[in-house]
Write a protein that binds this DNA or RNA. Structure first.
Length: 222
DNA sequence: GGCCAGGACACCA
DNA sequence: TGGTGTCATGGC
């Protein structure tokens, strides 16, 4: 089965996911940092606090004290670290682009990715999420869900690196922002609902093609 | 009460 | 380069 066929199966089941849930590129970036290893529901509480304090712009966040920021994003967990990460981003934005996010995001793909990765607190997944969902660059975002789903399908090794897994997709799919957007969102949806650490293979649309399911079901049969 | 969530970094061998 | 500990709230 091709990656596009797999995509269509997920899309038929779950429909469009309308990612990224945000009102501005800057909100995408803040959300991408806050959601690191954190349930999105908790991120929404933190984002709501920031909105209430009118702090969801580069300028306002830049001027906000780190203490206040820490307090506002508390529901998102890891709040001390994440406050430093958000501060590191806006400080970089002001130092390198005079606070102009549009200028920063308009850079060529490779240059922007290297710059994002140079900022403390932004790793490969967060950088790629920003590239795809804030800057609209054709970058495939992979995450723990992607690795779990595709290793269980038997299509990649569970020890595959981030870059290797990303290559796996970019070599096999057309470079489309729209496709990459929806595909990643669908994988997250499928990972949350079905392909969990304790999987719900009984309701999995991919079970027929899944090595993990075939092994576990044949083991039950014996 | 334990598990898990839309990771990244520091430190170590 | 790869493995491990740390960061932390909140829902199920």
């Amino acid at each position: 089965m091709s990656l596009l066929q797999l995509y269509r199966m997920l899309y038929d089941v779950y429909g469009p996911q309308h990612w990224w849930p945000a009102n501005s590129p800057f909100e995408v970036i803040v959300g991408a940092i806050l959601t690191q290893s954190t349930n999105w529901q908790n991120v929404e509480r933190a984002l709501e606090n920031l909105k209430q304090h009118n702090a969801l712009t580069p300028e306002r966040l830049y001027k906000l004290s780190e203490e206040k920021l820490t307090e506002l994003i508390r529901p998102a967990g890891y709040f001390r670290q994440k406050a430093k990460k958000l501060k590191a981003f806006v400080k970089h934005l002001y130092a390198q682009h005079d606070g102009d996010l549009h200028t920063m995001l308009a850079q060529p793909l490779k240059k922007l990715r290297a710059e994002l990765l140079s900022i403390w607190g932004i790793g490969p997944e967060t950088a790629d999420s920003i590239m795809l969902y804030a800057a609209q660059k054709p970058v495939f975002v992979v995450d723990t869900y992607t690795k779990r789903i595709f290793s269980r399908l038997g299509l990649v090794e569970p020890t595959i690196s981030y870059e290797e897994l990303q290559e796996f997709f970019t070599q096999r799919l057309p470079k489309s922002v729209k496709l990459f957007n929806e595909y990643h969102a669908l994988l997250v949806r499928h990972g949350k609902e079905v392909c969990r650490p304790k999987p719900r293979c009984g309701q999995c649309v991919l079970a027929r093609d899944c090595q993990f399911y075939r092994r576990s079901s044949s083991a039950v049969g014996r």
